[in-house]
């Protein structure tokens, strides 16, 4: 964090090449979580990983990581809320968390739209939440004993 330039040119250029690809990989893992291994938890962690890589490569003040860092806490809450909204939408079909969307053919992307949407909500929640936690730990710059006596 203290180095505004981030890491060496090799890491920065390779991060530029790979960042978008990691993002799309995470989204694919989450979107197809109901037919293949994966799901919102794995996808969300992969997306968080991509932004962690961007923060480490470009430093704390530039690049997509820094842009996302400002919004991470809000997006975290948005993910949790959208999960709740999707759950409440279940009342239109009968009960809390009931599947409300029309189901398609098995083994396809559209086989169960409500689970796909829930997976995306989990992706947002986990991705933004873990990234916010990482930012909190990584940006922390407290020196030993610097708070001694401040509020003892």
């Amino acid at each position: 964090m203290s180095d505004p330039q981030g890491m060496s040119i090799v890491v920065r250029v390779v991060t530029r090449w790979l960042f978008g690809l990691i993002l799309i990989f995470g989204l694919a893992v989450a979107l197809f979580g109901h037919v293949t291994p994966g799901g919102g938890f794995a996808g969300g962690t992969i997306v968080a990983c991509a932004f962690v890589l961007a923060i480490l490569a470009f430093g704390g003040s530039r690049g997509p990581g820094a842009a996302f860092a400002r919004w991470a806490s809000s997006l975290d809450a948005t993910g949790a809320l959208s999960f709740l909204v999707l759950a409440i939408l279940g009342y239109t079909a009968g009960s809390f968390l009931h599947q409300w969307a029309a189901r398609g053919e098995l083994f396809t992307l559209g086989s169960t739209p409500s689970i796909v949407l829930l997976n995306l909500a989990i992706l947002l929640k986990v991705g933004a939440g873990l990234f916010a936690g990482f930012i909190a730990v990584a940006v922390f710059e407290g020196a030993a004993g610097s708070e001694k006596g401040a509020d003892a």
Binding site: F140, G142, A144, S146, E147, K148
Partner: peptide
């Protein structure tokens, strides 16, 4: 980290 900062 917080404990280390506080107590050294």
């Amino acid at each position: 980290l917080r404990i280390y900062q506080r107590y050294g």
